[in-house]
Each structure stands twice: as structure tokens, then as C-alpha cells.
């Protein structure tokens, strides 16, 4: 019984988390609020179909992902994404490499992944790093990694070329890697117990 949805109020306790999730991808407060509202309405209507096998939050986020994709599709039709020039260039990562193309500083080990992924504080750090990504970069990256869409579909939806897409995802991964390195892996001693 514990996972039954007893009241709209219970769903509403998830609203702040859902809103943060939607904001990261839509980067637009009213669009994010719309997507969350649609999610909660759909959840209420479909409460009977909730199997109780996953947590309520996991179920809600599953619905929210679809609502976000709907919003992204609509908005990219109305206003195609225009990546800023520096979102499709990798020059600012040049300093990570020596002139011969080798790592200037070797990438470090990140400890035990299973342990890290059990810590909610890690995900708070990840969320802060995601928030720092430029809008278009974050959008392409999250469509790929959170929504799990195929590359071809993302290029089509966002109306960007394949080569720009690859650069944007490379940029996203390089930025996140540096950000996590700085804000989690170097700062948090407990996560480095394996080194």
C-alpha cells in the first residue's frame, strides 16, 4: 500500500524536484512549469495505471520526460535552436593538451562509480554543473543522455548539422568532466577513497 497515490497533495510534494529537472532542459521557467503541470495532471488521470513497482518519483519523471520532449519539439519548430559560435568550437579546450596533442595533465581515476552514484550530494553537484552549460549545448546533451534519443533524431529536432552536434556533445562532456573534477572529485575526500 505504501506506494499508492492517496491524494493530489502527495504528487505535489514532488513538484520542486520535477521543476528543477524540467528547467535544466527547457531553460525557460514558464515552459518548465507547463511541463510539470501537464505531468501532474497526467499522473492524476493515470494514477490507476501506476504499478507501484517503481517509486512515485521515478514514475513521475518518466511522464515528465515525454512532456519535455513534446515541448522541445514544439519550440524547435517555432524557433530553431541557434548555438552560439563558441558552442560549436573546441578551441577553449586546447589548453588541456600539449602542442603535440598529448594530455597536458593526465585524466585521474574517479574512484568507485557505484559508491559515487549512491550519494545524493553527488547529484546536486552534477546538477550545478549541468546548469552551467550553455543552453543549446545542455539541450543537445540532455536529449541524448537523459532522454536517450538517437543522434540522428536530435540533429533533426534541433536542426543542427551532425558535425556541430558532435562538437556540442564533446563540449558538454569536457565541461562536465572539468566541473565535476573541480567540484566533486577533488573537493570530496570520501569519493576518492579508492585512489
Amino acid at each position: 500500500m505504501r506506494n499508492n497515490i492517496s491524494a493530489p497533495l502527495e504528487l505535489d510534494t514532488h513538484r520542486p524536484q520535477l521543476l528543477r529537472f524540467a528547467m535544466l532542459q527547457l531553460r525557460d521557467e514558464s515552459a518548465a512549469e507547463d511541463a510539470v503541470q501537464e505531468t501532474l495532471v497526467a499522473a492524476l488521470q493515470g494514477a490507476a495505471s501506476f504499478s507501484g513497482q517503481s517509486s512515485v518519483r521515478t514514475w513521475l519523471i518518466g511522464i515528465l520526460k515525454h512532456k519535455i520532449i513534446d515541448h522541445l519539439r514544439r519550440s524547435s519548430r517555432e524557433k530553431p535552436l541557434a548555438p552560439a559560435p563558441d558552442e560549436t568550437d573546441t578551441a577553449d579546450f586546447d589548453s588541456l593538451f600539449a602542442t603535440d596533442g598529448h594530455w597536458a595533465e593526465q585524466p585521474a581515476g574517479w574512484g568507485n562509480p557505484d559508491q559515487t552514484l549512491q550519494q545524493s550530494r553527488f547529484f546536486e553537484a552534477l546538477e550545478r554543473c549541468l546548469r552551467d552549460l550553455p543552453k543549446s549545448t545542455a539541450r543537445a546533451f540532455m536529449m541524448r543522455e537523459v532522454m536517450g534519443l538517437e543522434s540522428g533524431e536530435i540533429c533533426k529536432e534541433l536542426q543542427i548539422s551532425t558535425s556541430n552536434y558532435w562538437v556540442m556533445l564533446y563540449r558538454a562532456r569536457m565541461s562536465l568532466r572539468l566541473c565535476l573534477e573541480q567540484n566533486w572529485f577533488q573537493g570530496d575526500a570520501s569519493s576518492r577513497s579508492q585512489t
Partner: peptide
């Protein structure tokens, strides 16, 4: 090492938003 970091990043994104404190 970098390759493992990318794999980790993918796992982390799939697991985002992380452990369910409400559950």
C-alpha cells in the same frame, strides 16, 4: 582513464536525479 570518465558520466546521467529520498 578519460574513456572511463565518459562511461561514468553516461551512467550518472541515466541515474539522474539520483537516489530517491522521498522513497
Amino acid at each position: 582513464q578519460f574513456s572511463q570518465q565518459l562511461d561514468f558520466l553516461r551512467r550518472a546521467m541515466r541515474a539522474y536525479p539520483g537516489p530517491d529520498s522521498n522513497a
